[in-house]
Simulated assay, not measured.
Amino acid sequence: MSKIIVITGAGGVICSALAKALAKEGHKIALLDLNKDAVDHLAKEIQVAGGIAISLAANVLEKDSLNAARQKVNKQFGSCDILINGAGGNHPLGTTSNTHFLEEDLKKNEGDFKTFFDLDTEGVKFVFNLNFIGTLLPTQVFAKDMIGKKGCSIINISSMNAFTPLTKIPAYSGAKAAVSNFTQWLAVHFAKVGIRVNALAPGFFLTEQNRTLLTDKNGDLTSRGKTIIEQTPMGRFGDPEDLVGTTLWLCGEGSGFVTGVIIPIDGGFSAYSGV
Rank of each mutant, 00 (worst) to 15 (best):
N59R: 02
L31W: 01
L18T: 12
T115C: 01
L18A: 05
I29V: 12
V6L: 14
N218F: 06
L83R: 03
I5F: 04
D120F: 02
F101Y: 15
L186A: 15
A30S: 14
P233N: 08
K192E: 15
V244S: 08
V275W: 12
A69T: 11
N109Y: 08
G174R: 00
F257A: 03
D239P: 04
S79M: 13
E208N: 13
A271Q: 13
L42E: 12
G268R: 06
G26W: 06
N98W: 04
D242N: 10
E253R: 09
G123P: 02
R211K: 15
I82G: 00
C15I: 06
P92T: 07
A21E: 06
C152P: 04
K217F: 01
P233R: 09
E103F: 12
S2M: 13
A43E: 06
V275Q: 14
S79I: 14
G89W: 08
T121I: 14
S79N: 11
R224I: 12
I7S: 10
F204P: 05
I46D: 12
T246V: 13
V188S: 14
E253W: 07
P92R: 14
R196W: 09
G89D: 01
G235F: 03
K226H: 08
T96H: 05
K144C: 03
N198K: 02
V275M: 15
L66K: 08
G148V: 04
G12W: 03
V127E: 05
I263G: 07
R211V: 10
A162P: 10
L61P: 01
L22T: 15
K144E: 10
P264K: 07
L34W: 10
K149V: 01
F77S: 06
D266A: 13
A58I: 00
G50E: 01
W249T: 05
A87L: 04
K36T: 03
I265E: 04
Q76V: 10
M234Q: 15
N74L: 03
S16W: 09
G148W: 01
D33F: 06
S2Y: 05
S180K: 04
A53Q: 05
K28V: 00
P92W: 10
F77W: 10
F132A: 07
A69R: 10
L213V: 12
E45L: 01
G51P: 01
D239A: 11
A49H: 08
G148S: 06
D112Q: 15
R70G: 07
G254P: 02
L22P: 09
A43H: 07
D220Y: 10
K3D: 03
L18Q: 05
C80T: 12
Q140L: 10
N129W: 02
A30W: 11
I52E: 14
G256R: 08
M146Y: 00
V188H: 14
T183D: 05
A199T: 03
F205H: 06
A191W: 04
D112P: 03
R211A: 11
F257G: 02
T99E: 15
L137K: 03
S158A: 15
A30L: 09
K176E: 07
V13Q: 12
L83K: 05
F113A: 05
F116P: 03
